[in-house]
């Protein structure tokens, strides 16, 4: 058996984190909303860091439905893009350093997005995870769930369809 030695853990982590950082940092709207991403292997969890400007109704106060929708859509899109890029990041065909300098693959485009509001958003952090149910050459279907204090009590969920960038290159 002469299996190649596995890469050192620091190298693997650095490559993956650098690629994710490049992807997230390039989008001004992610910074505006204050969204950060946690990574465990290829799994992403998005966090909407609470800020006063995310409030809709100041009387309750509750998160703006639009902020919740934007958070869900951003999580769905970044997760889908990340899933598509994962192989390239792992096999070295995508260079995280070049990505950080702005050489980013084209994003998927939202075709439609349908949000189901389940609870009013409390004035605190929210979390979301997306699942790519289907990702083909042209289209992808993604489901995303957001919660706050309790993972079993969803704040909102959404399903979206996306047009893949590979389909437009032809």
């Amino acid at each position: 058996m002469n299996r190649p030695r596995p890469e050192p853990i620091q190298q693997v982590k650095h490559r993956r984190d650098a690629a994710l950082h490049a992807l997230v940092k390039s989008v001004p709207y992610i910074q505006f909303l204050g969204i950060t991403f946690d990574r465990r292997g290829d799994e992403l969890t998005a966090q909407l860091n609470f800020d006063e400007k995310l409030i809709g109704n100041p009387m309750i106060p509750a998160l703006h439905g639009g902020a919740t929708a934007a958070f869900l859509e951003m999580t769905a899109m970044v997760t889908l893009h990340w899933t598509v890029l994962w192989e390239g990041i792992e096999n070295g065909s995508l260079d995280p350093e070049a990505m950080a300098k702005g050489d980013l693959p084209r994003q998927p485009k939202t075709i439609d997005f349908s949000v189901d509001y389940l609870r009013s958003g409390l004035p605190r952090d929210a979390y979301a995870r997306a699942r790519v149910w289907r990702s083909g050459r042209r289209f992808a279907s993604v489901h995303v769930e957001a919660w706050q204090d309790n993972k079993d009590k969803l704040l909102a969920q959404a399903t979206g369809h996306f047009l893949m960038s590979s389909s437009e290159a032809e």
Partner: peptide, 26 residues
């Protein structure tokens, strides 16, 4: 510029359009 979703095309992110739609519908 803070609403940009795609740095390559400088197009506003769909989420901002959603927020506008949600507000307008309300």
């Amino acid at each position: 510029e803070k609403l940009i979703g795609d740095p390559k095309t400088r197009v506003v992110h769909g989420g901002a359009v959603s927020a506008l739609m949600d507000t307008c519908c309300g």
